[in-house]
Simulated assay, not measured.
Amino acid sequence: MCAWLYLMQLLPPKVFRSQCRPPEPSGALFFFSSNSGLPPARPCIDGCRSLNQETFTCWWSAGDNERGSKANYTLMYSVGEAPGRECPNYVGGGAQTCFFDEAHTQVWEIYCLNVTARNEFGSNTSDEFCLDVIDIVKPDPPSHLSWQLNKEGSRHSVLVLWRPPETVDVESGWITLVYELQFKRKSEPDNWREKGVLRELQLELFDLAGGDTYIFRVRCKPNKSGSWSEWSETVHVFLPLQRISDNTLLAGLIVGVITVAFLTIGLTIVPLGKRFKNTIFPPIPKPRISGIDSNLLKKGRIDEINNILTSFHGYVPPQYNEQSWEDFVLVGVDDTT
């Protein structure tokens, strides 16, 4: 049985609604007064609604052209393939209604209804109206809408709270509701913003601009079927301007001073420091002899260098005595031996 109910939940809604049609304009019908001895006009089933998926109510109207004597109404209904039965309660939902209590309400079953109007001159029956209770659930609006203004440091947030409709028993688990929250600034009357679909009974809103009044409202519907309820009553919340705390102001001031200091050092002191260093410690010039190519000193032979240096006054090229070197080497060898 549980598996069957689960499969029925997955199926698309099965609602079959016939539109009410006014009486056909036969020439003789529109020229008689209300006491002309005609049967009543065809009634019209206007709709059905369940507040909580446990009971439901259907209502009808007398038709577009009520005529003849006062009519009596009888609502007949059938569930699935079962034989037709008469309305169990004509007074529970008001005049021209039929109330189905818990004993006469079944979900995932097709109800088909019609209403017959009778007087002493005849009768007239409405079109058939078919429904599934699971699809006509339209709960009452949520109740006890309230709010809390929270402050954390220099920031404000608004916690909006509400309760389920008093006509719905959500604690039993027979029906689960979801919610939609709307809010707007009072200065922007047509700019509603939405938060949904919500399963909790509260929502905290952050980063709302201060200095204005906000308007909140909420509605609900069954989780997987049915219709949205009407909107709840609104609540108005004034959100003050967010003041900058002393600590935040001091921190910003310190950061600004440090930034300016670093920029000053980078743009002025560093370039001046390089010039000051060059003044105190001038660069040492490289040694340079006028008239001598430095490349020749690096790569030239010794005789070429001597030829150039002899042009300078007092320069005497060194004399190398190969014999003396040989004697030195020989003496060194004899001494070691």
Rank of each mutant, 00 (worst) to 15 (best):
I136A: 00
E128H: 09
E120Y: 02
E120H: 07
N124S: 11
G122S: 03
C130T: 10
V133G: 00
V137K: 01
P142M: 04
P139K: 00
I136Q: 00
L145K: 05
D127Q: 15
S146G: 12
D140W: 07
H144R: 14
E128C: 03
E120S: 14
S146E: 11
N124E: 10
G122V: 02
K138H: 08
S126K: 05
V133H: 04
N119I: 01
P139N: 02
F121A: 07
E120P: 07
H144V: 12
V137L: 08
S143V: 15
D132Y: 02
S123Y: 10
S126F: 06
C130N: 06
L145E: 03
C130M: 09
L131G: 01
S126R: 04
E120V: 04
K138R: 15
E128N: 11
A117W: 02
P142H: 04
G122H: 01
F121L: 02
C130K: 05
W147E: 13
S123C: 09
I134H: 08
P141N: 04
W147L: 06
V137S: 09
P139M: 02
S123V: 08
I136H: 03
P142Y: 07
W147V: 00
D140R: 08
D132S: 11
I134K: 11
S146W: 02
W147I: 00
P141Q: 05
V137G: 06
V137I: 12
I136L: 03
